[in-house]
Amino acid sequence: MASTPLSSDSKHGGHSHVQPVWLLFGNMLWLMILLMVTWWASTFDFGNVVINNVVAMLIATIKAVFVIWIFMGVMHASKLAKIWVVAGFGFLFLMFGILGDYATRQFEPVSGWETNVPNGGASSFPRQWPPQKKPEQVGENFRPRG
């Protein structure tokens, strides 16, 4: 019968998992180490700016996962809470899909706001690959076809 574990848990105010001190302290130390890695990575050139940015965001994401999983107790949360958390961040990634729209359309040129990018600011993203020809039309909010 489930009453025994529930009763003993109830002593602490319901079904809760008391995290051991070593886990919390170790997590903090690990986050501090990752912070130093963040700083070190910012001073190191991994080859190009895209990789440098990806590395920085990867380390930040690892830190975030440890905060969420251990400090925020999602590790011991119910399945409902877990799926809620994952869905929440899933929607954040969906929102970033908006950038796909900006990346594939031209900005209207605005005097004083021209970008110094290789393709002359045809797209809002200074993409270098795939290599792109300078578009014939500038000032249209759609990509020229053909």
Binding site: L6, D9, G14, A81, W84, G88, F89, M95
Partner: peptide, 25 residues
Amino acid sequence: NMEQQNDSYIVGMWTFLVTEVMFFG
């Protein structure tokens, strides 16, 4: 029971936090 109550509170709090995630996002 307390388990259900606590779970409701935590899911509720995460709902708020998700709105904050989208806000900062």
